[in-house]
């Protein structure tokens, strides 16, 4: 039984949206593995994470199943859901300055869950908070606990956020763009903390980011999302050596490679799909160099396994083309691994 199993998750926002923000997402995370979820803003990755906690936007329609262990999040009773949130699953949010109440102390934030959900005494909770802050590398935990969020830098606040998420010893850790709001040096530090904690505690981790390179550094498996759908899923190294979906290929081609020779960056033409657009076929067809009217514009592609590549699935009827064909069609740069 997987730690996290998502089957056919669809979320439709209230209002004028013409297509659901999540459209039939399938995803699994096993205990102890780091799974990446990559996509542009608007691809629905954050909504997916929130759905795991049962925190979909109010008024939205949710279909499909989200199972954490054997608990069905969608049909869980409120008390069950709260237990899930307070013991099994924790989330590290993107912007710690927005996520921590500015009017309360860091100590209050750190000990809140332990005191209110588990009835710990203030002393015991503070002790644990000090331990955790030390584990994430804060230099002076007792002092920091007394401070307010505005007195700490973004990097430190994100450590606090992580420490707080770990305080409940979750089996599953969701990280929603945990480093996006930080500068590059701090990013590296935070990533190191996350990976170390994950290894030490054997947690399953869902790592959400828009940065493909980041995902490659951290994750064992990666899902690529576009317009609310999973378009490719593969072991990390396979995704980067043999991307199959034109979107993934485009993403790789459009990010600069700090190590290799400076090649021409090729941006993906067009703009991401808005919520008012609902094409009948493949969501990426309008921007895809490989698209042909049939089946791309008319038929919605499902995830199919890639021949010769274990654990690799792609939602693209044109993806079975060989690497040579892809180069010829201009989708791949010659010589790029």
């Amino acid at each position: 039984m997987a730690l996290l199993s998502i089957y056919g998750l669809s979320v439709r926002l209230p209002g004028r949206a013409r297509r659901p923000i999540l459209d039939g997402v399938d995803l699994t995370v096993e205990a102890g593995e780091i799974v990446g979820l990559v996509g542009e803003s608007g691809s629905g990755k954050s909504v997916t994470a929130r759905a795991v906690l049962g925190l979909t936007p109010s008024g939205s329609e949710v279909a499909g199943r989200v199972l954490v262990g054997n608990v069905d999040v969608g049909s869980a009773a409120p008390a069950q859901l709260r237990t899930l949130r307070s013991s099994t699953v924790s989330m590290v949010f993107q912007d710690p300055r927005a996520g921590i109440n500015p009017m309360r102390t860091v100590g209050d934030f750190m000990t809140e869950s332990l005191r209110l959900n588990r009835g710990w005494s203030k002393g015991a909770a503070t002790e644990r908070a000090v331990e955790l802050l030390a584990a994430v590398g804060m230099p002076d935990p007792p002092r920091h606990l007394r401070q307010h969020p505005h007195e700490l830098s973004g990097g430190m606040l994100q450590r606090v956020m992580i420490a707080a998420a770990l305080s409940t010893e979750p089996a599953l850790l969701l990280c929603d763009e945990p480093t996006t709001a930080l500068d590059v040096t701090t990013q590296a530090e935070i990533l190191a903390i996350l990976t170390r904690q994950q290894a030490q505690r054997g947690m399953g981790m869902l790592f959400i980011t828009h940065d493909l390179d980041l995902a490659s550094a951290v994750c064992t498996r990666v899902y690529v999302m576009y317009a609310g759908r999973v378009v490719e899923a593969a072991p990390a190294h396979r995704l980067f050596s043999e991307p199959r979906h034109p979107y993934t290929v485009g993403l790789l081609a459009s990010t600069p490679d700090i190590h290799g020779a400076q090649e021409r960056l090729v941006p993906i033409p067009g703009t991401p799909l808005g919520l008012l657009e609902d094409p009948p076929g493949c969501a990426f067809a309008a921007r895809c160099p490989l698209a042909v009217p049939d089946p791309c514009l008319s038929l919605r592609p499902g995830l199919e396994p890639v021949t010769g590549s274990a654990g690799h699935e792609v939602a693209c009827p044109r993806a079975q083309l060989s690497t040579g064909d892809l180069v010829r069609l201009g989708s791949l740069e010659e010589g790029r691994p």
């Binding site: 709260r82 307070s86 927005a98 996520g99 109440n101 500015p102 009017m103």
Partner: peptide, 26 residues
């Protein structure tokens, strides 16, 4: 509508508690 309220909910606190601790004073 602010994120710190969502964060508090995500940690399993009851809605009433969240309103009391994170909404009223703010």
């Amino acid at each position: 509508s602010r994120e710190h309220v969502e964060v508090a909910l995500s940690r399993g606190l009851a809605r009433r508690t969240v309103v009391r601790r994170h909404v009223l004073r703010n």
